[in-house]
Computed example of a mutant assay.
Amino acid sequence: MYNVSSSPHVKAKMTTKSIMRDVIIAMIPTSAFGIYNYTNLFGIKYGIHSALLILITVISCVAAEYIYTTITDQKITIFDLSAVVTGMILALNLPCTFPYWKAALGGVFAIIIVKQLFGGLGQNFMNPALGARCFLVLSFAGDMTAFYPKDIKEIDAATSATPLTALKNAGESSASLIDMFIGNHAGTIGETSIIALLIGAAYLVIRKIIDVRIPLTYIAVFAVCIMLFNQSSDPVFLAQQLCGGGLIFGAFFMATDYVTSPITKGGRYIYGICLGLLTAIFRTFGANAEGVSFAIIFCNLLVPLIEKYTIPRAFGIVKQKGGR
């Protein structure tokens, strides 16, 4: 008996579960370093807090998906691990001081509002984790920017800024370039260590989970634009911009989301160009030092339009004159 279905007929060993499993593995280095980093910076209390934030967001995402699909009498989809990935990405975008219940609320928002209400995996118009992050930024701005614990008296206002914030406000980073590359500074749990992020990114590339067109175009265009907008030719400034904030994390782990990024090759270049341009604009002219999350979400909305104009023409089809 043949299984009759519409084209295209493509067979591949990869499944949604295997892809999500690889993404989870790729995020382990930056998750582990984030826990270590905050243990080293602020003590074991905040290392444990960071680990629990990751656990709580994962549990809240999985529980929200299970409850929603059960109530609506849909197929239980928690075993494809997509909810786990959403929870991990959300947690890695949070500071180590973020309250547990607010992190759980963010997980529920990501799954119910951004993902399930639009039809579930494959139908969401923006990255669920980033949608939840922006929701938390708008709802709890103070907590989302509290990168240093209030109970540590040695830290004052001058030293409590992240390297990227200090670079924007004071013109110089609060951490050395080598510390920014290794990750010995404060920030969100998963964004600080460029080394750990690149290890995870290399794993995804080797496993052919992501296409490098998007991240490399994103980073290259951002580098050009940030130098032009700031009228700078200082390579150290450029390196600090590349290592600061969530640029590397966003480029390799969030902008490459299968559902919310273009499937066409040309579209991926256009998508990367838009991401780099918007991130540079937000960082240079915006009130906030960061800009990656909002740039990715905005470009997620452009994906249907990008794909419309970059979809390959079918073999044998010739565009008629006069637009007909």
Rank of each mutant, 00 (worst) to 15 (best):
T145E: 01
V108K: 07
V137Y: 13
G122D: 00
L117D: 09
G119K: 05
I111T: 09
V108W: 08
D156P: 04
V114R: 01
A141N: 13
A129N: 09
I155Y: 11
A141T: 13
R133V: 07
I152K: 09
P128G: 02
K150P: 00
K115I: 06
I113P: 06
S160N: 05
L130V: 09
F118H: 06
G131W: 11
K153L: 06
I152G: 03
L130E: 09
Q123D: 08
S160C: 00
Q116L: 11
E154C: 02
I111C: 10
T159I: 03
A132R: 14
K150S: 10
A132G: 15
F109C: 11
V108I: 15
F125M: 12
V108L: 15
S139C: 09
G131V: 14
G106K: 14
L121V: 15
D143F: 14
A157Q: 03
T159G: 10
F118I: 00
F118V: 00
M144T: 10
A110D: 09
V114A: 13
G106S: 08
D151K: 04
M126K: 00
F125S: 10
A158M: 03
G119H: 03
A146Q: 02
A161F: 02
F118P: 00
A158K: 04
A132H: 12
P149V: 08
D156G: 13
S139P: 02
Q116H: 14
F125C: 07
T159Q: 12
A146N: 02
G122E: 02
F140I: 03
R133Q: 13
D151C: 04
L138C: 15
A129H: 06
A129I: 10
I113A: 07
A132D: 12
P149D: 03
G131Y: 12
I112M: 10
R133H: 14
L136H: 14
F109Y: 15
K153D: 11
A129K: 05
V108S: 06
D143Y: 15
Q123Y: 13
L130S: 10
G107W: 12
V108D: 06
V114C: 06
F109Q: 07
S160G: 03
G106E: 11
